[in-house]
Write a protein that binds this DNA or RNA. Structure first.
Lengths: 129, 129
DNA sequence: AATGTAAATGCAACTAAGTTGCATTTACAA
DNA sequence: TTGTAAATGCAACTTAGTTGCATTTACATT
């Protein structure tokens, strides 16, 4: 687990271990505030944001922008790398679920357009609501 | 054209006519700044945002969140209402294109989940770049 | 184990998108 | 023409996220 950090050339600091572990164990995507509350009030804002950025760049996690104006983060080393990715946003409880096998394969882009990456946001109501 | 405003119970003010006309004539989605530059520096920030909100609520336009952290707006009375909608974001020129017929129909959500609305962001390179 | 150093942290100050409260003005119906 | 609810303009606010910089720490090298 923590080897992931070293493998990416990231030093294994206490915060990074806790952050990666927390996201790994989270069933859903977490916002900055969720994370801060989970890890303890004392964690520094910029350090946390910088680490989220570093993790994302390293491909350890991915960032989801569910139109709420607040990014959410999910562990993503195991997920598809850089290809199609779908997220379900519950309009009632605001939970963001990662949808694994959403065949959003057939997307027709106009002539001359090159698709690199597809992100789908599905809005609706989740099973819990 | 301006009848659209009346039809939605929105008063036909100068700014609203200009705003709706501008978005109608725009080939691509426009950010707040794009709009402000187009309509003139003197337009008021809150008035503009409030009108964008009102138009969106009335279904005249739709808002796109392309992960840039800055919403973009596109005329959308003619588009599909509330159903699947895809947008192509060019990573080079940042232009946001509305993709009309993207059959992202087959999306498998888990048991008990109810899909209401699907927004797809396709990232890549556009024909112009 | 001691040490050098690049990377990571903590803090405070900043940026910028978007919102809110309120007094004034305006579209439009009566 | 007039009454009024809606729209505007302004300033002040909120908040997610960033930046600059001095201090500290992980870890490789000797």
């Amino acid at each position: 687990m923590e080897d992931l950090l070293q493998k990416q050339g990231l030093k294994r600091t206490k915060l990074r271990m806790a952050l990666l572990g927390y996201l790994f164990n989270s069933k859903h995507a977490q916002s900055y505030l969720d994370i801060k509350n989970a890890l303890g009030e004392q964690v520094d804002k910029s350090t946390l944001y910088r680490n989220l950025g570093a993790f994302e760049e390293a491909g350890l996690i991915h960032r989801i922008n569910d139109q709420s104006g607040m990014a959410k983060y999910a562990f993503g080393a195991l997920h598809d790398h850089g290809n199609a990715h779908a997220h379900f946003v519950c309009e009632s409880c605001e939970t963001v679920y990662c949808i694994e096998n959403a065949n959003s394969s057939k997307i027709n882009v106009p002539e001359g357009f090159k698709t690199k990456n597809v992100q789908t946001i599905i809005k609706g109501t989740c099973a819990a609501c």
